[in-house]
Amino acid sequence: MNQSRLTHLQALEAESIEILREVAASFERPVMMYSIGKDSSVLLHLARKAFFPSKIPFPLLHVDTTFKFKEMIAFRDKTAADYGFDLISHTNPDGVRDNINPFTHGSSRYTDIMKTQALRQALNAGRYDAAIGGARRDEEKSRAKERVFSHRNAAHAWDPKNQRPELWRTFNARLNPGESMRVFPISNWTELDVWTYIYSEGIPIVPLYFAKPRAVVERSGTLIMVDDERLPLNPGETPREETVRFRTLGCYPLTGAIRSNAADLPSIIMEMQASRTSEREGRLIDSDSVGSMEKKKQEGYF
């Protein structure tokens, strides 16, 4: 206890807690995005710490595209029951009515309707003035440019060329009517930080992150898990068992698995250290075009 400075992870943890508390103190109706992935698990853990012994003073919002992995939904419901937070799940009813799916409508139209539009519906319905997200600056180039407190106009759009200056940790949380803020408490964490924190804190995560034999099909070099019967098989295509795991989680038809034997956290961290590819490589929606993430974010995507 004669320590005079925090370790790297302790400093990151404290910084994130400070940001979460600032949101609770500054906004009328905050909400925390809960995507069920590892970053969301870390964010949830940080929020529990930030307000302890109080309960998390805002609800968690999950945008359910109906194509999430089954194990994700099961994990979500168990986590909500274990920790007793207020969970809101929203699915775009227009998308359900029109049976929007990534197979017949394409990934970008599907993502727009079931994720971006759905998110905007949920944010408008809840009249949330701040939405907390688990994005990190090391994930992607347009995220690397985003502020911790990221201003959105009344249409939820981001103006990357005109961001508010953000000095020290003095965040400007003020809004005009209809505007909102996206807040990213783990902006300064790297993927490795997230994994080592999960390991050292013993944070529960979805089992899909751990390698195990799963039924997959291979399409243009990407391994897609056959999570249910909705995945249309191409002529001559048969699912085969492979030992795989996921580096990121999203909608199962759009999330590529990697071949791996890493079945526990130490193996994952060691494997990651040796890896020569970035985690978003497995996300099919990012590779549409240069600047695709920036464009989605301008439209309101997280």
Partner: peptide, 15 residues
């Protein structure tokens, strides 16, 4: 990382 930055070959915001 921003489209405008790549188009203009300049840096607009801190990355």
């Amino acid at each position: 990382g921003l489209v405008a930055e790549r188009e203009q070959g300049i840096t607009i915001d801190v990355a």
